[in-house]
Design a protein around this nucleic acid. Sequence first.
DNA 1: CGCGAGCTTGATGCCGATCAATGCATGTGG
DNA 2: CCACATGCATTGATCGGCATCAAGCTCGCG
Lengths: 240, 240
Amino acid sequence: MIRLQEAKVACSNCNMRELCMPVGLSDDEMTQVERLISNRRKTARGEHLYQAGDDFVSLFAVRTGFFKTSVASEDGREQVTGFLMAGEILGMDGIVSDRHACDAVALEDSEVCVMPFDKLEELSAHVSSLQRHVHKIMSREIVRDQGVMLLLGSMRAEERLAAFLLNLTQRLQARGLSPSNMVLRMTREEIGSYLGLKLETVSRGFSRFVNEGVLEVQQRQVRVLDQQALKSIANPTVCA
Amino acid sequence: MIRLQEAKVACSNCNMRELCMPVGLSDDEMTQVERLISNRRKTARGEHLYQAGDDFVSLFAVRTGFFKTSVASEDGREQVTGFLMAGEILGMDGIVSDRHACDAVALEDSEVCVMPFDKLEELSAHVSSLQRHVHKIMSREIVRDQGVMLLLGSMRAEERLAAFLLNLTQRLQARGLSPSNMVLRMTREEIGSYLGLKLETVSRGFSRFVNEGVLEVQQRQVRVLDQQALKSIANPTVCA
DNA sequence: CGCGAGCTTGATGCCGATCAATGCATGTGG
DNA sequence: CCACATGCATTGATCGGCATCAAGCTCGCG
């Protein structure tokens, strides 16, 4: 009889493998990694995976679903710092002080693989490709953040929006999904927070793109009609 | 006879030690770390320590001097992503793709300790406190970047400027320097780029703070007269 | 069905960008 | 030592993009 517990999906079979797992592991090493992350956790839409101030114990790999991360200033302003989809890693903000520095909230019912960080460190001391992988994941996050700074510091509203949409299409494509047809998991307000804009500005941007024939938008359903146009908007001088 | 080569300053004697070195190393481990970073490099004011696209080989610890890091969009806009002073670590942007993703430029004559990254990984596999330290340094950078996003995405011009000055005072204080008396190493334009503002706006902000009795400013010489006022400007609701 | 959360769209206003002129310090060559 | 150039900073005037305020719309859901 099948257990009522969720059926285990091993990393070696996981279709997100190439996104969150180092390549070139031996069978033995793979087994060790699978033991490390044998634990899973479901997070319902709207629930926190963790909050600022929580003890840091584990990193999380998104298996299914969609998350946002956000930081709040002391006076209550919230800044969305990222949107995360399957195969991406959450929680690295907590390493430095053993407490999480931001909130992570599921924007739809989601499931993550739990990776206890002390175990991850221990194993990566013996498996150099895993060690390298951990470093690359953290470095990737640093580079991504620099890109967001560039966006927030030097782009105008419609450029930001175009860059945001392009980024989404690329990440969907990397997962074998349609890059032109997507359902946004977040509200206009959350997009605005991420992009340093008000929700009305985001909405107007979408409307403008629709009028220009770049997008079709129906609520959160977005279809990219002219990816090239998006690129030229996001990066005017190069693509004009 | 003393060698004309620079006299070696061992990490164990370096006054930046507690900033860039893990605590609790045994003598033997400390020796290994010192061997790892035995190499130094001087960078004259205005010169690049590295540029976007350069092969990534090493991390760098600032020994003396001052750096900025910046990313450029394809159409040439530049965004300053950080200012680095003694004891801080440069180069982690290069790990993910084995190429540097940003530029690092010395804003005054500077010297860095060179830490070959493959050696650092090898050693950190054997010295767990070093491994942990590397992770913390990268995590700290991620958290810092989130703070900059919050600043760029949700603060107004004078709030940004106040937060920037407060951050500088804190870092100077951590180095045993006067938190109230500082010489800015960067131009108004570079401050503006970092804060997502134009240089005129930065200048006007300084002038306003001077009128309000919060600062004294003479060119790049800045004296903080009222740190509490700066805090209440940076974070209006909490400190008002 | 009716409520409420989220979205769109319009009117207005303000903050910071832009444009422009001047000031100031440093350096360089006559 | 002065004349001039150059880079950086300050300050004023004006402009424009996005925020703000406000009203109505859509859709999912109890």
